[in-house]
Computed example of a mutant assay.
Amino acid sequence: MRYLQGEELAVYRARVRGCLLGGAIGDALGNPIEMKSMVTVEAQYGEEGITGLVPDRHGMVGTITDDTQMTLFTAEGWLRGYARIMADGGRVETALVQEAYLRWLDTQQHDAPPPELSAPHRTGWLRKEPWLYARRAPGRACEFGVPKNHVPDPLGAVDGTPGPVNPDAKGCGSVMRSAPFGFTDASPQYAFELAARCARITHGHPTSYYASGAFAAMISHLMTGESLAGAVRLGMELLARYPGHEETTAALRKAVGLAAAGPATPQKVESLGGGWIAEEALAIAVYAALARTDHWKDRTPIESALLLAVNHSGDSDSTGAICGNLLGAQHGDALLPQHWLAQIEGRAQIAMLADEFTATVCPGGQRP
């Protein structure tokens, strides 16, 4: 546990809030243009692409997708697992995360919360939030992998072998939900391996779970004040220890090199892929967070990074969400674009979950 007080506690709380809320902003920015080509985006919104929150296909602004939904349930499940470890040493974190994903699955299969007594996993306040009961294009591997009832061994080796559920699935659905594994006082290596094991609940391809692990390790470093460049470098160094890391490492090296090669543009983002698969989504998000661009001259660096992360012909909401997680963990919630944050669906409940995390991980501090 972290026994933080005063300014240190405030910084930790701001980083947890920033990570979850920043991810929601990036998710909502990219949601309306996901799967649209940049030619179509520029024709619809102008040569700069989207420059802020725009209505989705239902005419709603600021709506989040399955990316933020699953991130919140990840946070809830891991928080329960962390509390159990602190209470009695019980190593059931992967089982509790899977139960949380079953609660998420309820939000995709029901119009309102099912009765609690109908299943043992149906507990807690998050599952009762009506705004979460909305299908926002859930990934097939997530939707069909969660009910398999196979929970990875919480102490099993992360060794580059395919997982038993969807062994060929290397989509980004495991990466976009993995930021909360970096929130606690556990080591970056623990965050990496926990994220990898929980990724295998739905995504068995090693690249998918390695990208998830590397992302969680980066968040872990950012939570302790490491620079973004340092967090990425340290995450890549940790990744390189695991057999079969090469595909994920190559994508990240390309992103880091491209970020150092001059001003960023949406065209350079396209060279990293579409973000549909795990390593590409993480690479695009890392590139957008690291790079500097004058493409949007009237925007702050954080705004420009988020816009860069979503203005491409691919999985814009996922790359925006991952980039927002990174930026929010680095800078905290106070520096997020407040005019965008004010329009985000469920922002009060997202902040409440973040504060619950802070109160559990930092019991010496006062609940906000």
Results as ranks from 00 to 15, higher is better:
residue 157 A to R: 15
residue 142 C to Q: 00
residue 59 G to D: 03
residue 30 G to Q: 09
residue 164 P to G: 14
residue 340 W to M: 12
residue 354 A to P: 05
residue 246 E to L: 14
residue 272 L to T: 13
residue 190 Y to V: 15
residue 323 C to V: 01
residue 37 S to W: 01
residue 115 P to F: 00
residue 349 Q to L: 02
residue 115 P to T: 03
residue 146 V to D: 13
residue 93 E to M: 12
residue 346 G to V: 08
residue 228 L to N: 02
residue 123 T to N: 03
residue 162 P to S: 13
residue 220 S to D: 02
residue 211 A to Q: 04
residue 76 E to P: 06
residue 44 Q to I: 06
residue 73 F to D: 07
residue 257 G to L: 08
residue 10 A to V: 02
residue 114 P to W: 09
residue 79 L to F: 02
residue 139 G to M: 06
residue 350 I to P: 09
residue 275 G to H: 11
residue 219 I to Y: 01
residue 188 P to E: 01
residue 238 L to F: 03
residue 242 Y to W: 07
residue 51 T to N: 02
residue 276 W to H: 07
residue 131 W to Q: 05
residue 229 A to P: 00
residue 259 A to Y: 02
residue 87 A to G: 08
residue 31 N to E: 09
residue 94 T to P: 04
residue 210 Y to T: 10
residue 287 Y to V: 05
residue 352 M to N: 12
residue 212 S to V: 05
residue 237 E to P: 06
residue 118 S to G: 08
residue 209 Y to R: 11
residue 274 G to A: 15
residue 329 A to H: 01
residue 190 Y to E: 15
residue 263 P to K: 03
residue 73 F to I: 04
residue 300 T to E: 13
residue 349 Q to G: 02
residue 269 V to T: 12
residue 253 R to F: 09
residue 251 A to R: 11
residue 234 L to H: 04
residue 190 Y to A: 15
residue 272 L to I: 12
residue 366 Q to E: 14
